[in-house]
């Protein structure tokens, strides 16, 4: 069932037409991988989904992105509300210069805790502790940090910092999580942990991941979209894309003969 429907998405950065007429829908509780050579518009695309491009001067977004039935680019929509619903994890782990606990507790402290009815309420100390533990467990980090929650997040390894960022994104209970090359700064063991985590997370969340690592896309995703110079070239079931892509451009890219 689609949770995100993108219709005729066009993005310009000044003169540069970065995304051209992209139309696709993303399924709920599935992992969608976005692949393509550098400069093809992958990051631009993923940053449109939670309106992160709004922060870039000269960026113009046209078209519709409908999440749960409403267009997130409608005039009355507050981008902050969108980002509560659609979390994001970046290429380089970027924890706040605070303790491990504070990193995860930061968003619930500001936005309150999301209740079952979708509304937020101010968290008590106990509730905050529960949320931090739940988020860290969900991000498969709790066992490694439970005895040093007060320590600076910078004392963690790169892989742990990235899982901390995932826990931080989970703390406000988003529906969708966007990952922009989450493993490119990590070693193979930390990468494997994140990949296991992604597959575990899709039970409860919809995941979109931009990756340069083709094998990673093949391993973790249900569907794969291939972008080239701002255009969506091919989008389909991952197994099919990696066994018999329908477009020659896709085959050239995934077999390493281009890009």
């Amino acid at each position: 069932m689609p949770i995100i429907e993108i219709k005729d998405l066009n993005v310009h950065f000044g003169e540069n037409h970065a995304l051209k007429n992209v139309t696709m829908s993303l399924d709920k509780n599935q992992i969608t991988a976005i692949i393509g050579p550098s400069g093809c518009g992958k990051s631009t695309y993923i940053r449109c989904i939670n309106r992160m491009n709004d922060l870039i001067p000269g960026c113009k977004v046209e078209g519709e992105i409908v999440v749960d039935g409403s267009n997130i680019y409608a005039k009355d929509v507050d981008p902050v509300d969108i980002r509560k619903k659609i979390g994001m994890v970046f290429q380089k782990p970027n924890p706040f210069p605070k303790s491990i606990f504070e990193n995860v507790a930061y968003a619930p402290k500001i936005h309150g805790l999301v209740q079952k009815d979708g509304k937020s309420k101010k968290a008590t100390k106990n509730e905050l502790e529960e949320t931090v533990e739940w988020s860290l467990r969900r991000a498969a980090l709790w066992e490694e940090v439970k005895d040093r929650l007060g320590k600076s997040a910078y004392t963690l390894s790169g892989g742990q910092q990235q899982r901390l960022c995932i826990a931080r994104a989970l703390a406000i209970k988003p529906e969708i999580i966007l990952f922009d090359e989450p493993c490119s700064a990590l070693d193979p063991i930390a990468t494997a942990k994140i990949e296991d985590l992604l597959i575990d997370l899709k039970k409860d969340y919809t995941v979109v991941i931009v990756t340069h690592n083709m094998q990673q896309a093949a391993r973790v995703s249900d569907k794969t979209a291939y972008f080239y110079i701002g255009e969506l070239i091919e989008y389909g079931i991952t197994e099919q894309i990696f066994e018999k892509p329908t477009k020659e451009l896709t085959e050239k890219y995934i077999t390493g003969r281009m890009g």
Binding site: M214, Q215, E243, K244, P245, I254
Partner: peptide
């Protein structure tokens, strides 16, 4: 070489 698609086939 981790081949895929036509190469892997």
């Amino acid at each position: 070489q981790t081949p895929v698609a036509g190469d892997l086939r």
